[in-house]
Amino acid sequence: MGPARVFAATSGRVLTVVAAVAALAALVGSAASGGLGELLRYGAIPVLGLVVVWALFWYPQVEVSDGEIVLRNVLRTVHIPWPTFRGADTRLSLTIDTTDGRFTAWAAPARSAMGARADAAAPGRPRLGPPRRGRSESDGHTADVVALEIAARRESLERAGHLRPGPPPTGVHVTTTWHLRMIAVVSVLGALAVAGAVLG
Rank of each mutant, 00 (worst) to 15 (best):
M1E: 14
T77I: 02
W58V: 00
P83W: 11
R159S: 15
G196P: 13
P169H: 07
G115K: 03
V28Q: 01
P46Y: 01
S138W: 00
V74N: 02
G196Q: 09
V52Y: 10
D100V: 00
W178C: 04
L24F: 07
A105R: 06
R13M: 00
F85E: 04
P46S: 02
A88V: 08
G140F: 00
S11M: 05
P169L: 02
D144K: 02
I96T: 04
G115H: 15
V70A: 11
V186D: 13
A121W: 04
P123N: 10
L75K: 01
V6I: 07
A105F: 09
I96K: 03
D89C: 03
L48T: 03
V198D: 11
E158V: 15
G129Q: 12
V194W: 12
L15P: 06
P60Y: 03
P123R: 07
M182A: 08
V6G: 01
A8Q: 06
A19T: 01
I150D: 14
V62H: 01
G49S: 06
M1D: 14
R135Q: 15
G49D: 08
A105P: 14
R154N: 12
H79F: 15
L56W: 02
G166I: 00
H79D: 13
T10C: 04
A193M: 12
A108D: 06
G2P: 06
F103A: 02
R154S: 11
I69G: 13
G34C: 07
P83M: 08
L180T: 12
S30G: 09
F103Y: 14
H173V: 14
T176W: 06
S187A: 15
P167G: 13
D139I: 00
T90P: 12
V186H: 08
D66P: 08
E155R: 12
D66W: 05
H141N: 15
G140N: 08
D119H: 09
G29T: 07
A55Y: 01
V64F: 07
V188W: 11
D97K: 04
E137Q: 13
D97Y: 09
T10Q: 11
A44I: 03
A184K: 03
R102L: 12
V21Q: 03
L92M: 13
W178T: 14
T170E: 14
D119G: 11
P130L: 08
T77V: 10
D66K: 07
R5N: 10
A160V: 06
P123G: 10
A120C: 02
A19G: 04
V70F: 09
E38M: 07
